[in-house]
Nucleic acid binder design. Structure first.
Lengths: 229, 229
DNA sequence: TAAGCAAACGCCACTGAGTGGCGAATCTGA
DNA sequence: TCAGATTCGCCACTCAGTGGCGTTTGCTTA
């Protein structure tokens, strides 16, 4: 039993002031970055500009984000963190590929609506900025590496199966990249507007579509291996 | 019959002088780069240094290579070019994955010994330089993209199979990355010395090992998909 | 509530990759 | 031998990212 004063859902109050300030700075930076980048393009905005609008020193910026690309893809990084958490808490039973698939969709589902908005913006930027696409792909490869490590620790560690674990992680991420790219391509024009109109009756790009794309892609994995000319 | 004066192996003569000079410059740059990077580390060598030792302006450097990373991984790029050529000339019959597998090993086999030396050096650098590992991974993703495009053009272009083609390309490259990483990891200490001793009786890292690793990895693809916990 | 401590920040100078512009050298083809 | 076109060198510039250091700000203990 916890005391009443200790709210456990989204408790922002009990956090030390210092921590709250940090969150606010981080949030302000990533929010302003998305806004500026969408407005004028990733390349056209310099870090000095971004840093000026948030009224923070450039030195401080790099205490929060490790690169200009990182602040634009923060939402994706959060997804990967959640994904890895899901996997860490999942029980490894049955086909491992199914577990990875389930963890990924669970991660996507568990993000809040704030995240969804930022993620859409990020993917919009990625779609029109090669540099960001590279950074995003790299992040997926890094995550894949982490997955392989985690699986390697938790499954039997025979050297023979090590190749299979690495391959499995690769394949799982391949499914993500394929699904995400398909999903982005289908929405290049319709979505990703700088100022998102809130309640457009039109069918907007939702995370449900993304999850559908993921499911469909995972389902196509088996066929792909044996694809005939 | 050719005249005796016209040697056909490595004929550098019939090429216009301008072209020969360009080749020499490019070769000198990539050769000096490998040497310097292996000697003192990728980060410790500045472009200005490299450019000074070759006695070329920095401006000229960027007319030959698009980045500092590119000059260190030139050998890999050549492999990808050859791979794509192989694929372009291959007949698409039977399982597409087998075709990709065959093209890759064929490409590796068709490179000359000069290439092998440079490739080994490059992989040694990649193994110890995260920045280069990223660049190499990105190059493999880009190649994978090209493969998907080529396959998309040559196979039937139904939207349904598009996902499978992308996935197949991803999976094929996943096999490469896994194989190459395994191969590098197995030789991190034994090989990749700045000044390679020519005829060490000891078993040295050869491209045969690499091809074996590729074969083994492709063979493990099917199992990986159905890997059970 | 005052003192002391550590974390976070701002400022500033600096490195180094990559680019733009333009005039000079060099190759080529008639 | 003389245009015309490439290619190159030089120089100044932009901008991401880092190191150092002094100052502020929140936290803690007396």
């Amino acid at each position: 039993m916890r005391t009443v004063s200790e709210t456990n859902t989204h408790d922002d109050r009990p956090l030390p002031l210092r921590e709250r300030k940090k969150r606010r700075t981080r949030h302000a930076l990533s929010e302003a970055a998305l806004h500026l980048f969408l407005e004028r393009g990733f390349d056209a905005v310099t870090l000095d500009e971004l840093v000026d609008t948030v009224e923070v020193s450039k030195r401080t910026f790099f205490r929060y984000f490790e690169s200009k690309e990182a602040v634009a893809t923060a939402a994706e990084h959060e997804l990967w963190d959640t994904y890895l958490d899901e996997l860490a808490n999942a029980s490894l039973t049955g086909p491992v590929l199914d577990v990875l698939h389930a963890c990924l969709t669970a991660a996507v589902r568990s993000m809040d609506t704030e995240w969804e908005r930022r993620f859409l913006a990020t993917r919009g930027l990625i779609a029109r900025t090669p540099q960001l696409r590279d950074h995003s792909d790299l992040a997926s490869l890094l995550t894949q590496e982490r997955i392989a490590e985690q699986l390697g620790d938790r499954l039997d560690g025979t050297a023979t199966s090590d190749v299979r674990i690495r391959l499995l992680s690769e394949i799982a991420m391949a499914a993500w990249r394929t699904a995400a790219r398909r999903w982005v391509r289908a929405n290049r024009e319709t979505a990703f507007r700088p100022a998102a109109e809130p309640e457009h009756g039109q069918a907007a790009t939702t995370r449900a579509d993304l999850i559908d794309s993921i499911d469909a892609t995972y389902a196509a994995l088996g066929d792909s291996l044996t694809l005939q000319a």
